[in-house]
Computed example of a mutant assay.
Amino acid sequence: MAVKVFAPWDNPDEKPLIRFENVTKKFGDFVAIDNLTLDIFEREFFALLGPSGCGKTTMMRLLAGFEAPTSGKIELGGQNIVPVPPNKRAVNMMFQSYALFPHLTVWENIAFGLKREGMEKDKLNARVEQMLKLTRLERFAKRKPHQISGGQRQRVALARSLAKAPKLLLLDEPLGALDKKLREATQFELMDIQEKTGTTFVIVTHDQEEAMTVASRVAVMDEGQIIQVATPDRIYETPNSVYVADFIGDVNIVEGKAAPLEENQVRIDWAEGQPPLVCTATQPFDPGQTCYLAIRPEKVMITAERPEGADNAVQGKIHDIAYLGNISTYHVQLSNGTIIKAQSANTRRIARRSFTWEDPVWLSWTATAGVLLAR
């Protein structure tokens, strides 16, 4: 049986749920969002990722209706929502602080919005029970927020946000207050709930691991612009710029001058006294053009002897070792001072390291292991 792949963005006939069209948002002279165009599809779990001040929260506030764009339009389900006030939009927002009512029980917190809308009692009770079940909070229905844990409060806020069945749920750094283990568990819960409800989620985060875990697609932002939008694996394996390569995960960036060879191969002259590197390029480079080779540490092999027939091999000394339990990262200093990181999996218990500080080693990788970027 063929597995149906969820990729509405690859289907030209698919209409987006949310469309940003040439949206600019200025605060005085400061441009927070710079002529941004973006489509987000129904049932997506979409992540806006970037450093503080890149414009991701402003985008979310524009969707919620707390800010209006300076120019451009925002559509939800084909309707321009810019003139629609926040409480009339089929959009709900879950805040980082959860914003629960301390004097109300979990049950009452979830029911609050539905009561305000005047939902009839039987329907309201059924809806709240459904939300408690979805977020596995049935046992805590009668407790107040201060009587439950941070992770449970987070789920109450989620249940309350989903109770009104919004078309779109906005999550602003929703897991920021949780510790690492709980955060990881909650990420999978969020994905599970999103799938069960079919609601479109847009999450704002500066945590790249979180974005890579939960999202169907990630938009990497910088200074009010979207630098790349793609699935997590494409963002990681084929970044479109040094900025994206550097922002997501660990990477070595080697700057050099390109010398095109045949069959998409490019020679990179990069440091005096170092052998040129070879890379398979997906885009054309001119002779002498500045280029950047981005290569992930896990794709660099570390050996004591020079490897036979390697496309790229450089020699250096181990300068630093980071032991992370499942992997070790070796920082290797070459004769010209460049540091290149290599990673290897610790499949056996480390009683005696194969390599230690100051050891001379060879680093090698294939021509297809890295990505050659123009900027």
Rank of each mutant, 00 (worst) to 15 (best):
G150N: 01
R353Y: 01
N35T: 13
A157R: 02
P83A: 11
P83E: 12
W365K: 04
E44T: 11
K133F: 07
E129N: 14
T200D: 01
L277C: 11
A245N: 08
E108Y: 08
R136K: 12
K88P: 00
G309I: 07
L170H: 07
F285R: 02
T238A: 11
L124M: 15
M212G: 04
G113I: 12
A185V: 06
S216Y: 10
I268G: 05
P16D: 10
E210A: 03
R127S: 13
A111F: 13
L63E: 10
L114K: 00
V332S: 07
A230T: 08
I33T: 13
F247L: 07
G78L: 04
A47I: 07
D122W: 07
A141R: 08
N80E: 11
A245F: 11
I253T: 08
E223R: 14
I340K: 09
V300F: 06
A2D: 12
A219H: 05
P297K: 11
T135Y: 01
E237Q: 15
N87I: 10
E237M: 12
L17T: 14
E189H: 02
K257D: 03
Y292W: 10
T105Y: 05
G288C: 05
V156T: 01
S71G: 04
G77T: 02
R267M: 10
V31A: 09
L63P: 12
N109T: 06
N252R: 09
M221D: 08
A90E: 15
N92I: 14
R160D: 10
V106G: 07
E358K: 05
I81S: 02
G309A: 12
T37L: 05
R375G: 11
V106S: 05
N336M: 05
R296C: 07
A47Y: 03
D222L: 12
N92D: 09
L36C: 05
D359F: 01
K164N: 11
A68V: 13
V3C: 04
P145D: 00
W270T: 14
G53W: 10
A177Q: 00
E14T: 13
P360S: 15
A351W: 01
A322P: 09
P16W: 11
A230G: 14
P276N: 13
H319M: 06
F30A: 11
V31Q: 13
Y323C: 00
M60Q: 12
I193Y: 02
H206G: 11
T290G: 00
I327S: 04
R375D: 05
H319L: 08
A219R: 10
D250C: 09
T58R: 08
I235H: 06
S161R: 07
H103R: 10
P360K: 10
L372F: 03
L277P: 02
A294I: 13
G77S: 10
D269F: 09
Q225M: 13
A230V: 10
S71R: 14
S149P: 01
N336W: 04
E75R: 10
D172N: 02
R296S: 09
N87L: 09
